[in-house]
Design a protein around this nucleic acid. Structure first.
Lengths: 350, 350
DNA sequence: AAATTTTAGCCAAACGATTTAGCCAACTTT
DNA sequence: AAAGTTGGCTAAATCGTTTGGCTAAAATTT
């Protein structure tokens, strides 16, 4: 018992009220074309509520061609999915989608190859109406795959001018962080970053260089330390250790592209007998949860990922509806959060 | 151009081969009922590939009554979604689902009220075929809401014997962690936990008590410190501070139900002038990413959430297919990871 | 040779909504 | 009074699959 309970369909509501299904659909969707008498409308509404009618998503999907579902293409590695960036991204997408009655499905992949396969499948099966893409790269193969087949919005900068893009102002962010270090008197500032094929790395490098240049200092490529792979404490540790080995004199400050990298820098510094912030000032990115709690607490740049992705989701929904989306590119500002690791605090205390 | 490209349907494949759609469907789904000549089968397969045919999910969904989508009901708060537990949970669910061609959508909620609304909607609209529930509580209102309306599996212990449940062995885990502290010579071990309406808290308390009892020590309820709300550094900090105020003599060890709580304990201890691990041994749960990197590195109990949720997803899929699922309750063992915060290390070093 | 079984594949009816075209009565306009 | 409008509703088509029932033809048995 209970098992066999038939789901209530629009037909049953129609029969209960004594009108056609077209009328019921009209009332429920509030279509402009067909007008319905106020009294009939009331009766339909009442009956729908009484019978607990709720349109089946799959039927709507078939008829309208829309699944009312958005895809989030995210890498399944701890360093990205566990980062506050993705947490906020998921939250922002969910929030915006939910408000409008849309669902969000996670297209999680282990490697880029798998991501392409997933996106391909999503486009063919039409399991989602659009996708949010993260972490664009040069010559991103995802764009030609999706173009004209499935609407998408890229979170992060992307060179294709036709592609709708929402990004945080990484150039500005890195510039401000670097300026902060410059203002504290640092002249030899290292930059620890993920490989430059990631546009985010390129942008932050640009901001770093702008600040250096505007301060009248020469740019020194020896102060750059690229990681082997992606983010992560281990990656930051190795990159900075490599840098220390390469230079005769350690830098006095480090700008790390991410808090996990910064944490690695902290460990490498400690191991090398460098005290933070006295011998080495460190600044990270993303304001990860541990940033406030590590030793010393990390100065970092907060990214408003939730806002970012809210914008992106909104744009994606407009794209799906076929509405024009302008401007194609949006920038969201960031915020520097000053803690102990950059030495600004101890200075004040002195 | 490109825009108007019609999606290829099963009808077109049928026409191309010169057979009916029924035959094409038969071939593609490998139905036993309808037999197809080997040669026809080949031609169908070839044409489908050539035309790039791919069944539309929404049409299949309407016809078969299955959306081939699983729901993950997760709280949208940083302390849970950012925890390695949920990261692994998402990963495990995604992995298992993907293997079998299923999708996973995130039903994210801000509060319990919203969760109920989401589940209700999911059941009515049939936007998913089943859901995974986390963090069961006493008299969980989600169970009666869903029972008989939408298949579900609970991750975490749940008293209802009819409900399919996958849990880590929290009793055993807490017992082992406590025994570890006892073996190090501690006699006054505090237990910091989230409110006891969460079954996880109850189980870990049980394990704690078992270890205490088996060691021949009396159970002292004064050593329990419940948090006000949920997980989080702040919550742990306040709970432990409260405990210190209440007791005349601080405990020599703390078992915290979660690493974030343990981190809060660490901060409170530091502020009170208690050195960890010398004056106070601390053990956490979950092996969060920061656990290895905080000061001192945290001894913790690793939960195999990915395995857990893989089992759960598998069981859910069987439930959806109407297959019998036994046993109803599965337990996955845990693992103690010893680091500096419990003092086992320094002891050895001495 | 007739009757039966097997094989191969087709037909048409769902699934549950949305939406277009059109009908009829009542009301306006000329 | 005829013609045109409009309001209020319905019938039927449609979305792209899956699937139970059916039928010819071929193979086998009687």
């Amino acid at each position: 018992m209970g098992r066999k309970r038939a789901v209530v369909t629009i037909r049953e509501v129609a029969k209960a009220v004594g009108v056609s299904v077209a009328t019921v659909s009209s009332v429920l969707n509030g279509r402009a074309h067909t007008r319905v008498a106020a009294e009939t409308r009331q009766r339909v509404l009442e009956a729908a509520r009484r019978l607990g009618y709720c349109p089946k998503r799959s039927a709507q999907a078939l008829r309208t061609g829309l699944t009312y579902t958005l895809g989030l293409s995210v890498p399944l590695c701890p360093d990205s999915l566990l980062s506050p960036f993705f947490y906020e991204a998921v939250k922002g997408a969910l929030k915006t989608a939910k408000q409008r009655g849309w669902l969000v499905t996670i297209l999680g992949f282990q490697d880029r190859q798998e991501e392409l396969a997933l996106l391909q499948a999503a486009a063919e099966q039409r399991s989602v109406d659009g996708v949010l893409l993260f972490d664009p790269q040069d010559d991103d193969p995802r764009l030609p795959l999706l173009k004209g087949r499935l609407p998408f919005v890229v979170v992060g900068r992307c060179f294709d001018p036709e592609v709708v893009t929402v990004d945080n102002d990484n150039v500005q962010a890195a510039k401000l962080a670097t300026q902060h270090l410059l203002r504290l008197g640092h002249r030899r500032i290292a930059f620890v970053h993920v490989p430059l094929r990631f546009v985010t790395a390129q942008d932050r490098l640009t901001g770093y260089r702008m600040a250096i240049k505007e301060a009248g200092l020469p740019f020194d490529a020896n102060l750059l330390a690229g990681t082997e792979g992606y983010y992560g404490v281990e990656a930051g540790y190795r990159a900075f250790l490599g840098l220390l080995k390469r230079l005769r004199k350690p830098p006095t400050a480090v700008l790390a592209m991410d808090d996990t990298l910064a944490l690695g820098v902290l460990q490498a510094a400690q191991q090398h007998g460098l005290r933070v912030p006295d011998d080495l000032a460190v600044v990270g990115f993303n304001d990860s949860p541990f940033a406030a709690h590590c030793e010393p607490p990390l100065t970092t740049v907060r990214i408003f990922a939730e806002t970012l992705v809210e914008y992106a989701t909104d744009a994606l929904l407009r794209l799906i509806r076929g509405e024009p989306v302008t401007p194609k590119r949006m920038l969201v500002p960031t915020q520097l959060i000053v803690r102990a690791s950059c030495g600004a605090m101890s200075r004040k205390n002195k």
